[in-house]
Computed example of a mutant assay.
Amino acid sequence: MAALTADRNTPRFEGDIRQGDVAASTLIYAGALVMRDASGNLVEGQTATGLIGVGRAEERVDNSAGSAGDLTCDYRPGIYRFANSAAADEITKAEIGDVCYAVDDQTVAKTDGTSTRSPAGLIEGVDANGVWVRLDEALTAAAAA
């Protein structure tokens, strides 16, 4: 495409709710940690590689009997509290600013579990109830690179 030679009304994405195709054989619960797989489809947070955290599910979507893209899921980037892992993978305030890794759709850990977990997001805070995680796909990908 050639450079502009006149004014252009460039479209803008409004709001903070995003939507994506749900992977095949996937059930995402409302409130779950949502990740994108290597094919660009959404899956629930889980211990697996090749994923990246994108947001929190705004709805329950059951594509467990469907093919990839049969259903879509609304999700929202932002800062959300998830459960903290335990033992050597428990996140402390010393890890604030670091990348955390998905254990499941509601739990994050300090390490990648010897290269078995994918990055979920950035640690914003830790309290007695869990870990505050910034879910932003671009920031997480850059920090994890």
Rank of each mutant, 00 (worst) to 15 (best):
A38S: 15
A38L: 09
S39K: 12
S39A: 15
G40Q: 07
N41Y: 11
L42D: 09
L42N: 10
L42I: 06
V43T: 14
V43H: 11
E44H: 14
E44D: 10
Q46A: 14
T47H: 03
T49N: 14
T49I: 15
G50A: 07
G50P: 06
L51E: 09
L51C: 10
G53N: 05
V54L: 07
R56C: 13
A57L: 13
E58G: 13
E59Q: 10
R60K: 15
D62Y: 13
D62A: 07
N63E: 02
N63T: 01
N63H: 01
S64N: 12
S64R: 12
A65C: 12
A65L: 11
A65N: 14
G66F: 11
G66R: 10
A68L: 04
D70L: 08
D70T: 09
D70K: 04
D70E: 13
D70G: 05
T72F: 08
T72C: 07
T72I: 08
C73D: 12
C73K: 08
C73T: 04
C73R: 04
D74H: 12
D74T: 05
D74V: 02
Y75D: 06
R76M: 10
R76G: 08
R76E: 08
R76C: 03
P77W: 06
G78C: 03
G78Q: 09
I79A: 08
I79V: 14
R81W: 03
F82A: 00
F82W: 02
F82S: 08
A83N: 15
A83E: 06
S85A: 12
S85T: 06
A86R: 08
A87N: 09
A88G: 04
A88R: 04
E90Y: 04
E90M: 07
E90F: 00
I91D: 01
T92L: 03
T92W: 01
K93A: 13
K93H: 10
K93D: 15
A94Y: 00
A94R: 03
E95G: 00
I96R: 05
I96D: 00
I96S: 02
I96W: 05
G97L: 09
G97Y: 05
D98C: 01
D98W: 01
D98F: 05
V99C: 01
C100S: 05
C100F: 00
C100K: 02
A102I: 02
A102E: 01
A102W: 01
V103S: 11
V103G: 09
